[in-house]
Nucleic acid binder design. Sequence first.
DNA 1: CATAGTGTACTATAAGCGTGTGACACTTCG
DNA 2: CGAAGTGTCACACGCTTATAGTACACTATG
Lengths: 136, 136
Amino acid sequence: MWFDIHPDSPIPIFEQIVSQVIFNIASGGLAVGDLIPSVRDLGMRLTVHPNTVAKAFQELERLGVVTARRGRGMEVTPDAPKLCQAERRERISQRIREALREAASSGLPRDELRRLVEEELNYHGNGKRRERQQSD
Amino acid sequence: MWFDIHPDSPIPIFEQIVSQVIFNIASGGLAVGDLIPSVRDLGMRLTVHPNTVAKAFQELERLGVVTARRGRGMEVTPDAPKLCQAERRERISQRIREALREAASSGLPRDELRRLVEEELNYHGNGKRRERQQSD
DNA sequence: CATAGTGTACTATAAGCGTGTGACACTTCG
DNA sequence: CGAAGTGTCACACGCTTATAGTACACTATG
């Protein structure tokens, strides 16, 4: 279960949590029937208020990714893997599309943009360059 | 003078205006000594409140990109072109870096990510048409 | 001079986000 | 049974954005 929250991002924290849970399910880090971490536990680990985590969980339930088990926790739905893989692709596409659209309309020279993208793409594509042995 | 504002984006409108003005100066759409559109004019064109535009202009003045000419308008600084070209590169880099970092940490297969990036890159690189081209 | 246009300042309202606190119903386990 | 842990709800508070309206000092133009 891997999380990377950016409190100062313009993207709301609860939205970031939603995406992170979706990514974890899509990548197989959470299987069908598993219970995701509780609102209080996750709130502690991310130094975020439990209410904020709860808001994210309600959104996840609305998406059909988890179902609330009163007194037990939030359980990963049988449909979740397929749903989350589609959602992941959609969200990642959206982010990249917006970034490149902004870059294109900014008038930045194409070769410079291309070089910039290649740089980042290789950076993340290889072994992270720095020893970072953390794996989900 | 080109503007592309997204009211529903998580990025504040005034921040979008700041970037757009910077991009216009960086690309040569606004030259040194030019007066950028007034807060009321731009507010009308973007269907945004003049106060919001004014907030963006104060940020631009803080960056040293324009100087306020009372009773006349906001004048593009002699240092603006160099400043804005650097700022443009920095902001575009940042956006692309964040998008690709999120994509990498999401567990999306690398080949799929690569294909997705190429798709968008070619789309924006050409004349906004999905055409096959042998350049490069 | 009068007028229009400029940036700027101030107050007020509303919405969304995040935190803080407290409480409730439920399930599990000792 | 009782205690601990679960999701859920309600209220309050502060903060940032954005809108709305009003007013002021300045500059350019006729």
